[in-house]
Design a protein around this nucleic acid. Sequence first.
DNA 1: GAGCCGTGGAC
DNA 2: TGTCCAAGGCT
Length: 378
Amino acid sequence: MDRRGSDKYRSHPLHAANDAQKTLEPPSSAPLLSWYDRHHRDLPWRVSPSMAARGVRPDPYHIWLSEVMLQQTTVPAVKSYFAKFLERWPTVKALAEAPTDDVMAAWAGLGYYARARNLKKCAEAVARDHGGQFPDTEEVLKALPGIGDYTAAAVAAIAFDRPAAVMDGNVERVISRLYAISTPLPAAKPMMKAKVALLTPSERPGDFAQAMMDLGATICTPKRPACSLCPFRDNCVALRLHDPEHFPVKAAKKDRPVRHGAAFIAVNEAGEMLLRRRIDSGLLGGMTEVPTTGWTARIDGDATAGAAPFAADWQTCGIVVHVFTHFELRLAIFRAAIVGRPCADDGWWEPVTNLEAQALPTVMKKAIAQAIPRAFNQ
DNA sequence: GAGCCGTGGAC
DNA sequence: TGTCCAAGGCT
């Protein structure tokens, strides 16, 4: 058990780290900012250096929206969603007035759907309590739904040029290597945040924060970091120890259990599919689903017949496997041709041609595609 | 503090 | 193929 990541606990000579540190100059923000000016990435939510030089500041709404989307999500995955949201809801006020179901449907596929629910709540709070203007301090930002330590600091620094200590997974990796911190995460976070605070300059704190994250994303990568290109190469204790990949040390992860369930794709003679809305809390909260069993039981033929939303000629369509963060789901898929609209009180019958507009999470799209291969465009 | 909460890409 | 992980927040 605990095979995942357990080797991260392999021992490391602390005395060597201390000895190496004595021979290194402490890092400063200047080389990093210089590197950032030379390697700036053009991202949709950023203000270009030339515009910034003319005093143009980023739109706080854009920064906030991008930062929420980027929580535990990669830049390539976010880009199209960011463009879609800005086109549809150009201002925080527009987002505040949008129907929640529209926001959930637009978010479908990005994952961590509590972010979408909180995004809407946050927009409403900004419109209602702050006159449609985002607050410009960490403390007030953090009081808003979906804004925690990281996002509050990031918005304060990037949008408002506040000297906030921004720490995400990238910065944790950079800092842990710079100082060869052997305390495992997450226990080491307070120590790391203190290091970041000392390193954060009063000039260009927003650029510094983005530079630290860019450095972690492109140079100080988890595997095979490009240390020879790093502006901190002469200050990095982990590099001096010839083992940057050893850091950050993390607590071992737990095994991922397997859960079983069944999903039922019912289509009537009018080309409509039975859908339901999940409760607002918990897994896939507030999102749309096809009828399913609970996701704990082991499914066999007898249990499946009783678990269907209504009696019908259910045909088996095989198994869909979907991996969530903390468990793996194996979903038995069943399909039936229905006459009329049974169970309409428990959900609704949606034209199959309109499935793209629904708030269907990826696991549900996979289940539907298993039963009806042409339900979605690829 | 630790568990819960998605997804897709890289290796 | 399995494993890790990506600009975390909430409870």
